[in-house]
């Protein structure tokens, strides 16, 4: 479902991604671990072209992201086409980024209406459905600021699902939350994973990785050091760097 091939990216002289290869099959959950500054978030943001890569290719469901190939050249897509591609890729931010001036319901209904996918009424019905899925139907008419961090992130997840994306990307979804609110967000993500959603999750929640991930990816300094099933990467890592990282976060 997601194919990442030899992806490079640098900000100025500073290389952030130094040749990343990663595959996530349909219905699979990949959890990306690694120290801060290792390029995890940049990789995730490249998958929906919030960052342009300097080299390499990213495909989602066979479709090349951000470019069109003609012969040996990659032509940059126009913004309109990039936006269309993004509507197949849900993204959940560390800071939620809900629209503060819209109600919870309108936050979720906005994208399907904007993309001409659903009528306003249908989008609202769908939004209520999704709120049911994250357990917040009673908050439909609240504004984001009236919700706790955990509730806001659950709304943000519902918003990402409103376009029926093929994959959902999570960028440290629990890092901005009070410890006691982390659980409710992870519960929602766990349900999503069980229902067969293809997900890439950047997180520091090792327990979640162990329980939910099909593949755990360990990144350091812009490279994938190792990847494999959680039992392998978490319990008997082959790299010293992975071992020292895990010993610190566990």
């Amino acid at each position: 479902m997601i194919e990442i091939r030899d992806v490079h990216k640098s900000f100025g002289a500073h290389g952030v991604l130094k040749g990343i290869d990663l595959d996530v099959a349909a219905g699979e959950v990949a959890v990306v671990l690694g120290p801060s500054g290792s390029g995890k978030s940049t990789l995730l943001r490249s998958v929906n072209h919030l960052e342009k890569v300097d080299r390499g290719q990213i495909r989602v469901d066979g479709e090349l992201i951000g470019y069109r190939r003609r012969g040996n050249r990659l032509h940059e897509l126009k913004e309109r086409d990039v936006l269309k591609q993004r509507s197949a890729i849900g993204f959940v931010f560390q800071n939620f980024n809900l629209f503060p001036h819209l109600t919870v319901l309108d936050n979720i209904a906005e994208a399907p209406v904007a993309n001409g996918r659903l009528s306003k009424d249908r989008a609202r019905v769908r939004a209520v459905e999704l709120l049911g899925r994250v357990g917040l139907v009673d908050k439909a008419d609240a504004y984001p600021r009236q919700l706790s961090g955990g509730q806001q992130q659950r709304v943000a997840i519902a918003r990402a699902l409103a376009l029926d994306p093929k994959v959902v990307l999570f960028d440290e979804p629990t890092s901005a939350l009070d410890p006691e609110l982390v659980g409710e967000v992870l519960d929602v993500m766990r349900d999503l994973a069980r229902s067969g959603t293809t997900m890439i999750v950047v997180t520091h929640e090792i327990g979640f990785a162990r329980e939910v991930a099909d593949t755990v990816v360990f990144m350091d300094d812009g490279r994938v050091l190792e990847q494999g099933p959680p039992s392998l990467v978490l319990d008997s890592p082959s790299h010293e760097r992975t071992r020292s990282f895990l010993s610190k976060v566990l």
Partner: peptide, 10 residues
Amino acid sequence: QAAAALGIPR
């Protein structure tokens, strides 16, 4: 970024 990630037209 959120609006762009949701594919909302410019």
